[in-house]
Nucleic acid binder design. Structure first.
Length: 173
DNA sequence: GCAGTGATCATA
DNA sequence: ATGATCACTGCC
């Protein structure tokens, strides 16, 4: 099966909201054993830099989030509630510490279920999105122009009303 | 609505 | 060392 061209690192060297929007309709591709799984992305969230009170990076650099402070196009992966893996890709300038969370792909809703379906685990932390790492993004179909809706992000009330209400979640409609 | 789950981080 | 928190999910 022919795969779309892999999206390179420069795509991610832009503001998180732009990347999050442009990833809707793109492919998320995983190589597991010798198999290639490919899913169309349907839902993302942007987490801006250290000024974004909903972003992990706003509470400073720690062992968990240090990948966020590194180069764009690498995976920020962490575990939440002791069981669910969250898949993010770092965006923006080096040290900006922004990222995009992959919340949903076609047929699969919820970030934990996305990670489960793709076999995401700790060994991918900090790896670049590329065929060499076994997990990467592919450009959307040329004639696929999805309608996109913007809403507040899910589960970030702890950030306070200003940041919790910003429309940084992108959903294919 | 809410329990489960355990890594992570601040505090000490 | 201890305790609170958590970018969630599944079942009621």
């Amino acid at each position: 099966m022919k795969q779309p061209q892999a999206i390179g690192a420069e795509f991610f060297e832009r503001p998180a909201a732009r990347v999050a929007r442009d990833l809707i309709g793109a492919q998320l591709v995983r190589r597991l054993d010798q198999r290639i799984l490919s899913f169309r992305i349907t839902e993302t969230e942007a987490y801006e830099g250290v000024h974004d009170l909903a972003s992990h990076s706003s509470r400073g650099r720690t062992a968990r989030n240090e990948v966020m402070f590194g180069p764009a196009g690498h995976f920020y992966i962490y575990r939440i509630y002791g069981l669910h893996w969250m898949l993010n890709v770092v965006t923006g300038k080096l040290g900006e510490a922004a990222a995009v969370l992959i919340r949903g792909v076609e047929g699969i809703s919820g970030p934990g279920r996305v990670a489960l379906a793709l076999g995401i685990e700790a060994s991918l932390r900090g790896m670049p999105a590329s065929p060499a790492s076994g997990l990467w993004f592919g450009y959307p179909e040329q004639n696929d122009k999805p309608k996109i809706k913007r809403t507040p992000r899910i589960g970030v009330d702890y950030a306070g009303p200003i940041w919790a209400n910003k429309k940084l979640r992108f959903v294919r409609i």
